[in-house]
Write a protein that binds this DNA or RNA. Structure first.
Lengths: 368, 368
DNA sequence: TTGAAAGCGCTACCAG
DNA sequence: CTGGTAGCGCTTTCAA
């Protein structure tokens, strides 16, 4: 006997005074069918007569019933929940990514369980994603300890890295085209006549920053050009400090590539407001990501785009694949972007610095 | 008999080839205790002998066992999950809020289930938070249909509005001090000698925008000053268009208050780059929120702060209260901010426009 | 302090 | 197509 057995129009109040939601059992009684029938009525493609179904749905609506996804998860062993770990949301790229991820997964019937890694605490907080039985884990811009990766693997939970790579062969990753971007930027700056180059790294530990820098140098150094270098820690203030160091040096670079737009915007401000330089005339500043604010007139930043929608659709696809085929090979996708030329870089002789922005070149592509 | 009855060192592989995680039952067998004992070992303050507990924990570690929170939720009727609905993350205020919320709730042992409302689709997506049995719902910057609010109430799920109010007496809310901010801004602009005022609203439907405007007008209009007005739709481009309309008019305002920083930054760009005006000299521009970028040198924006940490700790406290005392009165907290004076507003005669930024005045406070 | 047993609300498998 | 029945993995009585 359940709760005194009576069926109420509205959620029954339990003995503690807390509201109890109606269950499939209540609906069944109300509709005069079995509890199984109620389950079927709410299961896509289940074998149930339309009439029965309608009767159940009507009863459910009257009682304000909704299937309890917790109970469903317990038996289906699918929580329809994706654990997402993001680091810092200051860099606009990540909120944009998060929003796109959320929409894309919602469209597939999944929800995001959000985990932010507070400064110090790495794994411990993240680790209990496993207790929540998320169907997959997506790590955007966070260190993944190999221990956690191993635990996820052991638990059969797919791990996907977004905008980050790892050496571990068991985890999939989706990144922008760091190599292509670094090369494109170097070539473009060379073509614009620059000869003194700088690079502001994100974090030394970041594969993303390293890959961009390596590709940039791979173009410049063979031609005999050195690259002045500073570390901006992916941070607004850090990038300002790095820029000051670069610009205050004897042979200050007149072309600086930043590991991302977030830092490039900070650098541009230092050049403009502290050194009185005009970006696009006295020096060129280039970022990476093409975040929304890069297009604002305060920055008008030349950058290499990371097409968020493509990256997200790629990672969603890979995630769903990994969920349905746990033994599938991990994916390592590189999504091409394109050089977006704006006013922060020197224009070719004869053209005004503030020339119209170029369209992104190239589309998405997966590469081995 | 479970799964053939054998206990493995590592997660057993089920028949479908999918990894099955060890259960409390497996751990019990391995440790030579009952399954109840395993449960107790993982329950804070349960009655269990230290020796037993250690034995269980050791066995659990060997098997890689983690309690299944889904199963726990089913019986405790607490998912330890908070549903958070955010609208658009372009405005940096919301990522900041989200990050702070996430950290604060994580510290209390709760996780955030993220729901973003795709343009168009309002309730439907959000509605299945109820199916996920979230312990509470926090709505930041999203319309709450009274229908959904009612459903939550019926389900006994507390609803909290963050940075937004409603007329419904059953939902709690935590907002910044829109009235105090609007007044402070008006008084400050008056004191700086402005006589032609403008306001750029967010959305007409937004209580936040309306409250700020009303307070602003309540100071200005009794003194005989009108307020030119445009709607920026809380959007970068919308704010630019609104600003153009204001500045192109015959009697253009020389002091414009924007419903938030996100729009104020756009407006400042229009004034500076399209109208050749120098903010802080030719006109004053004021925002609301004090987002991170407001302090960047490109904007150096005078604004009224919404102290995120205080708002978040307030909403977390209220949420936990509502969860543990479902019949508690809804909270309506207003968190005071302070006027942050930067270079985007005209300085008093004699002082340079780019005077050092002032410190926020006043601290947090809850008011009825 | 401990183990056995009874569910939480649901899905999935049976017969019918 | 339908109703019964057996669990999913856990917490929580209840006796011992």
């Amino acid at each position: 006997m359940r709760r005194g057995g009576s069926v109420a129009k509205r959620p029954v109040r339990g003995f503690g005074g807390v509201a109890l939601l109606p269950t499939a059992y209540d609906v069944a009684t109300h509709a005069g069918v079995s509890q199984s029938a109620v389950s079927r009525a709410f299961t896509e493609g289940a074998s149930i007569a339309p009439a029965t179904r309608d009767r159940v749905l009507k009863a459910a609506a009257e009682l304000g019933y909704r299937p309890n996804l917790i109970a469903r998860s317990l038996i289906t062993r699918q929580s329809r929940t994706i654990g997402v770990v993001v680091g810092y949301l200051e860099n606009q790229f990540y909120p944009q990514l998060l929003q796109a991820l959320s929409h894309a997964f919602q469209a597939e019937g999944y929800r995001l369980l959000l985990f932010t890694s507070p400064p110090g605490s790495g794994d411990p907080v993240v680790a209990d994603m496993l207790s929540y039985r998320v169907d997959a884990v997506i790590l955007a811009s966070v260190m993944l300890s190999s221990h956690l990766a191993e635990e996820c693997r052991a638990a059969g939970i797919p791990v996907l890295l977004l905008n980050r790579k790892t050496d571990s062969p068991t985890v999939s990753s989706v990144t922008g085209d760091n190599e292509g971007g670094g090369r494109a930027i170097a070539n473009y700056l060379l073509a614009m006549g620059h000869r003194r180059f700088g690079y502001v790294a994100g974090l030394e530990s970041s594969s993303t920053s390293r890959d961009r820098e390596a590709a940039y140098r791979a173009v410049l150094e063979p031609q005999g050009f050195g690259v002045a270098r500073a570390v901006g820690h992916y941070d607004h203030m850090g990038a300002k400090i790095a820029t000051r160091a670069l610009l205050a040096s004897g042979q200050a670079p007149d072309a600086i590539f930043y590991a991302n737009d977030h830092m490039a915007m900070a650098g541009l401000e230092v050049a403009r407001f502290e050194f009185g330089l005009v970006p696009g005339r006295d020096l060129s500043i280039v970022g990476f990501d093409n975040v929304g604010a890069a297009a604002w007139s305060s920055f008008d930043l030349t950058t290499y785009s990371q097409p968020i929608d493509h990256m997200v659709s790629m990672v969603v696809g890979a995630t769903l694949d990994q969920i349905s085929h746990p033994q599938a090979e991990p994916v390592r996708a590189v999504v091409e972007g394109g050089l977006i030329i704006r006013a922060s870089t020197r224009a070719p002789a004869g053209a005004p610095a503030g020339a119209p922005a170029g369209a992104p070149a190239g589309g998405p592509a997966a590469r081995g």
